[in-house]
Structures are given as C-alpha cells and as structure tokens.
Simulated assay, not measured.
Amino acid sequence: MKKLFILILSLSCYQNLNAQTTVIDKEKLLDFYQTQRYADAAKYLQSVYSEDTQDVKALSQIAYCNMMAGKLPDAEKSYLKINAIQPNTLPVLFSLASINSRRGNELKAKVYLESIIKLDSTNFNAYKQLAGFTDSTALKIAYLKKANALNAIDADVAYDLAFQYKNLKIYEPAYQVLKIAIAADTSNFILQQAQLPIANELKKYKEVISVGEKLLQNGGDANVVKDVGRAYFSLKNYQKCITLYKILEDMALQNESILYYMSISYRELKNYEMATTYAKKTVEEGISPNTALYYSLLGGIYEERNQNTNAIAAYKKGLTFSAYNTIYYRLGLLYDFKLNQTKTALGYYNQYLKSKPKAEDKSQIEYSKTRIAEINQPKASKIGLTSVQN
C-alpha cells in the first residue's frame, strides 16, 4: 500500500512538471522587435530559457535576434545547436552560410551551401551564392548556369552569367541570357546597358542605337556613350560617332580606342587635319607615361652586365617616349666613363640640366655642373672623377 502511494505521488509530480511551460512576455518581445532592439530581445530570451535548452523554436529566436544585432558568434552558436538537434535543416544551413560569409570565412560558407545543394539540387539561392564564392571561371559559370536554368529572370544571375560569357567572348549565349531577363523587366536599365557591348559584337548595331539612345535620355553613363558611338561608327555615321565621342573627350574619359575611332571618322569625312590631330592623340594615349622609366630600368640592367651598346639603345629608346631627365644623366655617365667619349657626355650633361631636374636630385645636379666644368677645362684638376653619383 505504501509503495503504491509513492508511485502515484511520483507520477503526479512528473505530470505537474511537464504541465509547466515557459512564459514569454509577448508584448515586451514585440516591442523589442518593433524598435529593432534585437540585442535586448536576445538577452531577454536568454534570461527566460536555460542555457542548455533543446527547444528548437527558442534557439531559433535567440539565433535570429543575435544575428540581427550583429552578434554573429552568438548567433552561430545557437544555429549549431539547432543543427545538432535537427541536422540538415535548409534555413539553418543558409543562416550558418550567411554568418560565415559575413565573417569572411568563405570556405565554411561554401561547405554549408554545398550541403544545401546535396539536399536540394534545385535550390536556386544556393547556386547563386556559390557562384560568388569561387575564383574558378568554369565553376562560376557552372553554378550560374544552374541558377539561371532554375530562374531565368533573376537579374543578378543573368547579369553575372552574361558578364562571364562576355569575358570569354561567347557573345550569343550572353545576349540570349540578358534578352530573357530584359523581357521580364523591360525597365531594367542595368541589364540593357550590359547587353549593348555584346550586341555590338554581334553586329546588332541598329538595336544598340535604338536601346542606347533611350538609355542616354535616361542619364546613361559613359559606357553607353561609347557603345552607341561604336554602333554609329559601324554604320558609317561618322559625324554622330564624333559627336558622342567628343562628349567623352570633354569629360576626360577618352581612351586609345575612342581616339582611334575619332581619327578614322575624321578621315572618312575628309577632315584630314583633325584626323591627323586625333591620330597623334591616339599614339600618345597608347603610350604609358612610365614607358621612359621602364627603358631607363632596362638600360641600367644592360649597364650592370657591361652591355653598353644595348644600354645606350635602351636609354635612347626611352627618350623617344618622353624627356625623362635621369636618362640624360645616365647617358652622360656612360659616355664619359665607360666609352671615354667626353664630348658626347658633355652634351648629355647639358641636356640633363636643361631638363630641369627636381631639387631632390641635388647631388646629380651638382656633379653634372662640376663635370661640365672639368670637361671644358681639360687641364683642370681631376678631383671628383671618382665620386660619380649613380
């Protein structure tokens, strides 16, 4: 009888314990959410639930609040608990991927996303995100193609896939990908602009002009001007090409290609003076401002290898691009001390001084002046000959 009483009492206590539920102040929690005080919401929920709680709903709320509050390590901790309790839940895997992505751990983010596509091979968002986590062009295209096949009208995926195709000069597929996305969103100027250079490559010049002119009316940027100008050039409307490309030149946005097309256009219009002007500008634009410096470097290397003829050739080639004053100085030293041609050296020392070297090159300036004086007075003291400043 006594044993039966104890058993009944035990069962009663167990039922009472299970009947107890966690009480949440919903109004308080709602106020935290509405005022976006997610850190306070997380702190409140953690004060209500025990640290070792296995309540998935509670852990999800805590994880979400911490993630929204930017407390990513705490959010990850809760999501990992959920993943241990209920493995391979897609929303949890996405959250873990997002957290790791935001923390710069792309490797772990990729692992979670790859787990998602193993569970769901038709998950568009997973493929889209994976494309952003690889440097492999082939793999990136594979992910983007899969995402595009699942949702052909997603503008971001269409743009990225077309961009990859364009870089590989695969123009027709790039054009078609954008065409479908544009048909679904005819006001998407970004997609339309992305299609212009591709359409040019496919010789769809009239389409480029039609679409491009509309984009220009809506504030199209310099790339639109460039693409439309090229289309006009291809259709032999040279004056229109010049008009558009002049806009780029006035904005200092010209490049070698722009200037080349302008020169050709002026030539076709029989304006040979302007054609010559822009041909020269094309040459100047095509030359790096550092070319002379590079030849100076090459000349110095030849000197160190005692290949003086090659050194002179490199230095003089550098001077054809710009009057880089250090080259004059180097040629002066080379002719002076390695070739013993003092008259030629004298000319280069003088050229160096006339090129207005910087004040910071004081030692080279002073040495050039001293050496010029010595060469002009052969019988003068040779003091200083061994103190060449390289």
Rank of each mutant, 00 (worst) to 15 (best):
Ala275Asp: 12
Gly286Tyr: 05
Lys240Leu: 06
Gln254Ser: 11
Asn290His: 02
Tyr266Trp: 09
Ser257Ile: 06
Gln254Met: 04
Tyr232Glu: 04
Glu273Asn: 15
Lys236Val: 09
Thr276Lys: 15
Ser257His: 07
Leu259Ile: 10
Ala292Met: 05
Asn255Gln: 06
Tyr261Met: 13
Thr282Trp: 08
Leu244Lys: 02
Tyr266Arg: 11
Thr277Asp: 02
Asp250His: 11
Glu285Ser: 13
Ile264Ser: 12
Gly229Glu: 07
Cys241Val: 04
Leu269Asn: 13
Lys226Trp: 03
Thr277Pro: 00
Val228Tyr: 00
Asp227Tyr: 01
Val228Phe: 01
Thr276Met: 15
Asp227Gly: 02
Val228Ile: 00
Val283Tyr: 09
Met251Glu: 13
Tyr272Ala: 14
Tyr272Phe: 15
Lys226Ser: 08
Tyr238Arg: 04
Lys226Phe: 07
Thr277Glu: 09
Tyr278Phe: 15
Val224Tyr: 00
Ile247Lys: 15
Gly229Met: 05
Glu273Trp: 11
Thr276Gly: 15
Ile258Ser: 00
Lys226Ala: 07
Ile258Arg: 01
Leu269His: 10
Thr282Arg: 11
Pro289Ser: 01
Ala275Ile: 11
Ile287Thr: 09
Tyr278Gly: 09
Leu248Thr: 03
Ile242Lys: 01
Glu256Ser: 09
Glu284Ile: 15
Thr277Gly: 02
Ile264Met: 12
Ser257Thr: 10
